[in-house]
């Protein structure tokens, strides 16, 4: 069976081997289009933010509303304490990593719906992965959408190299949305200024890092990190979204500054 009208690359894709390095290289020769170049993906932390309740969440909601019309925002949510609870129950019972991924999805969905109800009066919808086809329309008409940060891998989540907890969680899921749509920025809203040399909640000598490359960060081999490790590998392979920003959402104005492109918090970039 053959297809006509194909380019040379197209013919080698249809008839050749997908493990041929030359064919693979050819598929990356042209950069992909940027599907939503004016949008920013914002990930609101679960444990670090939403679990703090109204003192943290209400001012951030106000700031999101202030930026409606100025910035298109695709807002993803983390899991947090209930995800940790579910994971610890699951580890104790010997459940597979793929099942934990399903459980984590439920928690980040709850958080997405909570944020959704807080923004509902502004007409901001919540969308599931199956509804991402409507995302451009909602962004154009309402200026923002809410999604759950967990990538929809469910039972097909890979095992982690260490331990049992799903390696691709809400940081990775939100980041991948910013990469696939070629978005302008990826902002992680947490409860720390950004990246530190150690966990500032536990180590008072921890130093702040305002800007760092992925390779420098990997070379430091920090025991803990403000963002899921696989995000760093994904950034190195990324075609569009080659940097991310981590900000302290507890400080009023930080989200607006980050949306405006100011270097608040920590910027991590692929070399």
């Amino acid at each position: 069976m053959s297809f006509t009208n194909l380019s040379e690359l197209g013919r080698s894709l249809v008839h050749g081997s997908l493990s041929d390095p030359e064919v693979l290289k050819g598929t990356g020769r042209e950069p992909p289009i940027r599907i939503l170049p004016n949008a920013t993906v914002i990930k609101v932390g679960g444990q670090s933010f939403i679990d703090r309740g109204r003192t943290a969440v209400f001012p951030l909601i106000d700031e999101i509303v202030e930026n409606l019309g100025r910035h298109q925002m695709i807002i993803g949510t983390g899991g947090g304490s209930r995800a940790r609870h579910a994971y610890s129950v699951a580890v104790d019972l010997g459940l597979p990593t793929g099942v934990m991924s399903v459980l984590g999805t439920f928690v980040s969905m709850q958080n997405a719906r909570l944020i959704n109800y807080l923004l509902a009066k502004h007409g901001i919808p919540f969308i599931e992965p199956a509804q991402f086809g409507q995302l451009p329309h909602y962004l154009a008409t309402r200026g923002a959408v809410i999604f759950f940060g967990m990538p929809p891998y469910t039972f097909w989540q890979e095992n982690p190299a260490l331990g049992r907890i799903p390696p691709h969680r809400t940081d990775a899921g939100a980041y991948l949305v910013s990469e696939v749509f070629g978005c302008k920025r990826m902002i992680f809203v947490k409860d720390e200024e950004g990246l530190y040399t150690a966990d500032p909640k536990k180590d008072p000598s921890a130093r702040f890092i305002p800007r760092i490359s992925v390779s420098e960060l990997k070379a430091m081999n920090l025991p803990d990190l403000a963002v899921e490790h696989p995000v760093l590998d994904m950034m190195e392979n990324a075609a569009s979204r080659r940097s991310i920003q981590i900000i302290n959402g507890l400080e009023k104005g930080n989200l607006t500054r980050a949306l405006n492109g100011e270097p608040v918090g920590t910027v991590i970039y692929a070399d």
Partner: peptide, 24 residues
Amino acid sequence: QRHHLDSMLMRESLLDRGVQQATE
């Protein structure tokens, strides 16, 4: 100020290698 649920992973960073090791 964060509301936690008591569990093995409570108040822990899931990004911490030591915590990941504990689930191994």
